[in-house]
Design a binder for these strands. Structure first.
Length: 671
DNA sequence: CGCAAATCCTTTTTT
DNA sequence: AGGATTTGCG
């Protein structure tokens, strides 16, 4: 397939900074991959001079794959395709000396951050979970805005003063633990490049051309990082769509697109408006919906794929029935139109909405895949093993220490831990160091002390072995899991043997990932530290996604759906309070919710069905939600509302029997 | 110190 | 309604 004129312009223009305003489905990934190929083939760039940055691991992986296909694996050697956070991690790792960091640092996820904040504030304030969440997000926002604790302290008012003090202490403790949080992965490199001209030049030479995908998602610190990396020469292409900016709560703002024009007056802007994904009717609805938002750049999607069928709105009696009807519709269509399960996506606002759909899919024996929902890494067994690995890499990681010091049971209880904690506090060292202080034996009971000793010895012994290259380190981890009798512990602590087996399977999966990363395959082998940090960034999750993309119905949040496309899309829970989410209604941030709806609509290639429930249980009580305002903003000629009242129940019955028959058929086929 | 019951709190989106 | 955390007992 040929590039259209706009696309070609975006690919071949390399004279200066370029902004590609790429509407949904306008082939932006193709433009990026073609551009990289163009740079390598026709311009004076080697693959290793080029970096492409995305926001999700999944996007990075997909892009890498597509470039490999276009350019060939060999020609791609040294090409950087990564998320912002991975790039940041890379820079930090190579500049630890300048940053004054010890090697072997840990990455804190926000649960770790919350645990640290809790420890910091517990004595003086009675903190609840929502306070901690607020604190984490405040600190995160300050970091994203590149404001140091001092700067915040100087200007904070009211409640913020307290948070600012906490911020300052939080930073100090992170440093003491030799730990970084996710935001540091952007902030540190940015500050580093800003303040060290020599380092900056080194990286500007290293990355001679920079491409940024999903540019509308950049926050202040990420944008500054981009600016510092491209420098005066400003050789870069950013691709974005202000209508798909759905991460303002993370500091990303559509206005960043406009900012670019101010900072680079010579900026060239190319608009991609031809859509290669959806039927015209779907685009019409999307365009009209998003017209309700103010715009920096005008943009109107069109396609030549035909007008298409009307969009539909389906009501369920309650959320259960909503799910049943969606599943019934899928079963019916698959039977009548010979569609594949994999052609369907069910998109929702919040992860909790997935439950009912999962249940209904299981009942009908329909294969499905849920993406996101932090499932794997939030499993207790994974967090346990990760904590062991983190402690191996960085013994000063108190969060990791606390998680596993008595897991499996070693007879080190709260009393002993309190003593160790006091000692650590008093000596201003980490808990693990405190365990090695002479005189600890006088504070603990004999058995507890003995247990602590052997724990310390275990970690040190394993860490030493894990530091050795290749096979040795893999064995070290295998032996560790054996030694602590984790499998036995799982069987002891799980409600059923089946559950324990399941959990052990997860552990083995994690183990497999780590071993794969430690061994050298095509790329160079990672150190354990690198592997652990990569896992903290959830880098393997996407890899797992790749493995089973069979014929399965896709379930995901609207956020997670960005960048994807499906022939048939259900947008479920189209209700006030849910799709404009209640909190966004309260904050008056309807525009972002509208963009979220826009993203959902533009995922659909052929058919789009909205569903909602007349009744929904929420916090134990039943509410009767209004249909989402966005449904009324659509051109009503193109939307077919399911008739209400009597006709509904008739149709419902028909659908139900169809579904039952289909389910029966399905069962017979299976067994 | 470890396990079971009782309470209470939840639901926005993610690197 | 369900899951997580905290309390109370053996």
């Amino acid at each position: 397939m040929q590039l259209n004129p706009r696309q070609r312009e975006a690919v071949t223009y390399i004279g200066g900074p370029l902004l590609v305003l790429a509407g949904a489905g306008s082939g932006k990934t193709r433009v990026i991959t073609e551009k990289i190929a163009h740079l390598v083939r026709h311009c004076d760039y080697r693959a290793k001079d080029i970096a492409a940055v995305t926001f999700t691991n999944k996007a990075a992986r997909e892009m890498k794959e597509r470039i490999h296909k276009t350019l060939g694996r060999q020609a791609c050697r040294g090409l950087r395709v990564s998320t912002f956070h991975t790039l940041g991690l890379d820079i930090i790792r190579r500049e630890t000396a300048t940053l004054g960091m010890k090697p072997g640092f840990s990455l804190f996820d926000d649960q770790d951050s919350m645990a640290l904040l809790k420890a910091l504030t517990d004595d003086e304030l009675d903190v609840d979970k929502s306070w901690l969440k607020l604190a984490v997000s405040k600190i995160s926002n300050w970091k994203n805005d590149m404001r140091s604790p001092d700067a915040v302290l100087a200007s904070a008012e009211g409640d913020d003063q307290l948070f600012a003090v906490v911020y300052e202490q939080y930073q100090r403790h992170l440093k003491a633990y030799n730990a970084l949080d996710f935001d540091d992965l952007i902030l540190l490199p940015t500050v580093l490049l800003r303040d060290h001209p020599a380092v900056r030049e080194r990286w500007q030479k290293r990355i001679r051309y920079l491409l940024v995908d999903e540019y509308q998602d950049t926050n202040t610190s990420q944008y500054q990082l981009v600016r510092l990396l491209v420098g005066e020469r400003a050789r870069f292409t950013v691709v974005g769509d202000d209508d798909q900016s759905i991460y303002s709560w993370r500091g990303a703002q559509p206005k960043n697109l406009a900012l670019l024009q101010d900072d680079f007056p010579q900026l060239r802007v190319v608009k991609l408006e031809q859509n290669y994904r959806s039927m015209e009717r779907i685009l019409k609805c999307a365009n009209i919906l998003i017209d309700n938002n103010p715009h920096v750049f005008e943009k109107r999607l069109f396609s030549d794929m035909g007008y298409g069928e009307p969009l539909r709105v389906i009501f369920g009696r309650n959320e259960e029935n909503e799910a049943e009807r969606v599943v019934a519709e899928i079963v019916r269509e698959r039977f009548l139109e010979k569609t594949r399960y994999g052609d369907y996506a069910i998109l929702y606002r919040g992860n909790h909405q997935a439950r009912g759909f999962e249940k209904s899919l299981i009942n009908n024996r329909i294969p499905y895949k849920m993406t996101g929902g932090q499932s794997f890494f939030s499993r207790a067994e994974i967090k346990d093993i990760m904590a062991y690995l983190r402690l191996l890499v960085n013994p000063d990681d108190d969060n990791a220490f606390l998680r596993i010091i008595n897991l499996p049971r070693r007879g080190i209880g709260p009393t002993s831990m309190e003593r160790i904690g006091e000692l650590a506090n008093q000596e201003r060292v980490s808990l693990f160091s405190a365990c090695q202080i002479h005189g600890l034996n006088t504070l603990l009971s004999a058995p507890a002390f003995h247990a602590v000793q052997s724990f310390v010895e275990l970690i040190q012994r394993t860490a030493r072995k894990a530091a050795e290259p290749g096979e040795q380190s893999v064995h070290a981890i295998r032996d560790l899991i054996k030694f602590i009798q984790y499998e036995e512990w799982l069987f002891e602590s799980s409600p059923s043997p089946a559950a324990a087996e399941m959990r052990m399977k997860n552990v083995n999966e994690l183990y497999r990932w780590v071993s794969d990363m430690l061994k050298d395959d095509d790329d160079e082998a990672l150190s354990l530290e690198q592997a652990v940090n990569k896992l903290m960034l959830r880098d393997m999750l996407s890899r797992q996604d790749e493995e089973d993309d069979g014929d399965q119905v896709q379930l995901m949040t609207l956020h997670a759906s960005k960048g994807l496309e499906f022939p048939y899309v259900f947008m479920v829970g189209m209700e006030e309070g849910l799709l404009p989410h209640q909190s966004s209604i309260d904050e008056g941030n309807i525009e972002e919710e509208r963009r979220l709806a826009y993203v959902g609509i533009t995922r659909a290639q052929q058919r789009l069905i909205f569903t909602l429930a007349r009744e929904r249980r929420q916090y134990g009580e039943t509410i009767r939600p209004e249909p989402s305002r966005f449904l009324f903003e659509l051109p009503q000629d193109d939307v077919k509302w399911e008739d209400s009242q009597t006709k509904v129940s008739h149709e419902e019955k028909q659908q139900r029997s169809a579904s039952n028959i289909a389910a029966l058929r399905n069962m017979l086929k299976k067994d």
